[in-house]
Design a protein around this nucleic acid. Sequence first.
DNA 1: TTAATAGTGTCTGTAAGACATTATGAC
DNA 2: GTCATAATGTCTTACAGACACTATTAA
Lengths: 224, 224
Amino acid sequence: MSIPEYHDSSGRRLVDYPRPSVAVDTAVLTPDPERGLLVLLVRRDSATRSDAWALPGTFLHEGETLAGAVLRSLDQKAGLRGQAPRQLYVFDDPRRDDRGWVLSVAHVVLLPPAVVAPVAEERPDDVQLRPVAEATGLPFDHDGIVEMAVAQVRAAYAERPDPERLLPEPFTLRDLRRLHEAVAGRRLQPDVFRRHVRDHLQSTGEATRGSVGRPAELFRHASR
Amino acid sequence: MSIPEYHDSSGRRLVDYPRPSVAVDTAVLTPDPERGLLVLLVRRDSATRSDAWALPGTFLHEGETLAGAVLRSLDQKAGLRGQAPRQLYVFDDPRRDDRGWVLSVAHVVLLPPAVVAPVAEERPDDVQLRPVAEATGLPFDHDGIVEMAVAQVRAAYAERPDPERLLPEPFTLRDLRRLHEAVAGRRLQPDVFRRHVRDHLQSTGEATRGSVGRPAELFRHASR
DNA sequence: TTAATAGTGTCTGTAAGACATTATGAC
DNA sequence: GTCATAATGTCTTACAGACACTATTAA
């Protein structure tokens, strides 16, 4: 990529400024509806001196977007095909990384358990899943990233039903509630939850069959 | 700053990767209680080819934090001494700047009108103040930055009374409400507003004197 | 006394939360 | 029928919004 001549107000060319390395670190979260909690993916990084469990991350390559770097790192380091990552915060302490001047852009990605679970099972020495409540003590600023990631996802799910579209359609209100309970990390009352989300959903007219108890109505996300 | 040897998973040294320039662009907002609206500071940038009005910004220097770069750019380019900037978003399209590969970290700063107004009066050819509703048509991603900045500030002020501590203490509820009306860009009912913020404030026991009408109680922000 | 502004009482509508009740299927 | 689960009715509480009313000063 050619950089045209450019002088800033002090007469220095843009290209003459020292530039930081830019990294991305990603909190990969997945709900566990069975246990009713959020789970964080951590990986053991053999490239860095510290052999600790940490968030997956990578350096931004030339011509690449931040989201692209996040998806590449998840693919390479955890064998995951991800959805749209969301930016959380830029960590910019000039001395935060003793390998040099490195900015880190923290991201969060929420994935369905069906995608994440197999990866952790296949590569237990590389990749682990930990309930977010027990996922502290990570190196660098990673504890803070996880905290922001959890807050971000919980706020989004408190706002509207399954904004990340993790649930395959059609689904019952019970399925949806279990998902939200896992994200929120606490029980939700069925009737309160129903009234909270009902207007954002579209009935399919169908119902579950063969289950114990009264069949449940099946829904899709409303048009939007 | 020395960069220790470091090989990533593909065997390349950290220092060998091409690195982006990192810039900061800042939406400087100030409430105008007289007119009841939020005002944006724009400056004419003679260094870039485009001579358009735009947000103040600068490139990140070595060893500097993003907040430091924001404060430096406000000082240099608008003669402003600012408070804590807040990050909004990283714009990362590799082709967003034709001078080269430049990431821009958007920020927002809210300043008291007493600080901003004199600057605009002293340097009308360099610095202008525009109501946010009329501050569209800016170059680059700046329109989007302004939108995010306004949303951020409005959300913060809807949450608690004057989180940026713009009002000098002590203040009356009328002063506080005027400030919030300017931030929100709409009228707020005195009684509703009072009940909304009362618990977060601490009475000084004093009252205004010499004004028309019943004297107003004077408040400070509650301890916190 | 009047004008002007500060502050309070109270009514309404809406929504969350909690609990009881009804509905509908499998067995 | 019994059991299990889905869905709804309704009561309480809280709070925003709206409006009327009272309080306290200057002039």
